[in-house]
Amino acid sequence: MMMAQLQQEDKLNLAPKKFNMWIFIFTSFMFFAALTSGFIVYSGGSGKGIKIILPSAFMYSTAVIILSSVTFLIASRAAKQLQFAKQRMFLWITAFLGILFFCIQVYAWKILIDMGVYFINPNASQSFIYVFTSMHLLHILAGLGLLFNALSGSYKNIPQVKNLFRMEFAGIFWHFVDIIWIYLYVFLLLNQY
C-alpha cells in the first residue's frame, strides 16, 4: 500500500524534474558564459582577434536550427491537441533538422580548415571557434537524445501526462540549445575583427 502510493507519487512528481532541467540550463549557460569570457580575456589580453570572416555555412546552420525550434513548437502543440501522428511527423522533422545542423557545423569546420584556420593555432581566438561549436554540438547530441526519447514515448502510447512531460522536457532543452547557438554566433560575429 505504502509503496504503491510512493510509486504513484514518484510518477506524478514531474514538476521538480522539470525544474531540474531549468537548473541544468543555468549550469550549461554558465559553461558557455565562461568560455566566452575566456575568449574576451584572451583576445583582450593578447590583442589577437578572430581576424577572418566567418564562413556563411554558419548562417545556414543558424537558419536550420531556428526552423527546428519552430517545427518543435508545432509538434508540441499537436501533442497538446492529441494529434499524435502530426506530433510524430514534426518531431521527426525537428530531429532531421538537428542532424542537418550537426552536419552543416562539421562542414563549416572543413571550410575553416580550407581557409587555413586550424584548431591548433598560435592565435587561440581562432581555436575558440572550434571550442564553441564543438561544445555546442555536444549539447545538440544530448538534445537529439531527448527528442528521440519523446518520440519513442509517443510511439509507445505512454499516458498523455507523461507524453506532454517528455515533450516539455525536450522542448526546454531544445529551445535553449537553439538560443545558445544564436548567442555564440552573434558573439562570434561581433568579434570577427
Binding site: 537548473i23 543555468f26 549550469t27 550549461s28 554558465m30 559553461f31 558564459a33 565562461a34 568560455l35 575566456g38 584572451y42 584548431f119 591548433i120 593555432n121 598560435p122 587561440a124 581555436s127 571550442v131 561544445m135
Partner: peptide
C-alpha cells in the same frame, strides 16, 4: 551549480592544450 561549469570550461581548454597542442 553556477561555479563548477566554469571549472569545466577551464579544464576543457587545458585538455585541448595538453592533448591536441592548442595554445590557450
Amino acid at each position: 551549480v553556477l561555479a563548477f561549469p566554469v571549472l569545466v570550461a577551464g579544464v576543457v581548454l587545458l585538455i585541448f592544450d595538453r592533448s591536441f597542442g592548442t595554445s590557450f
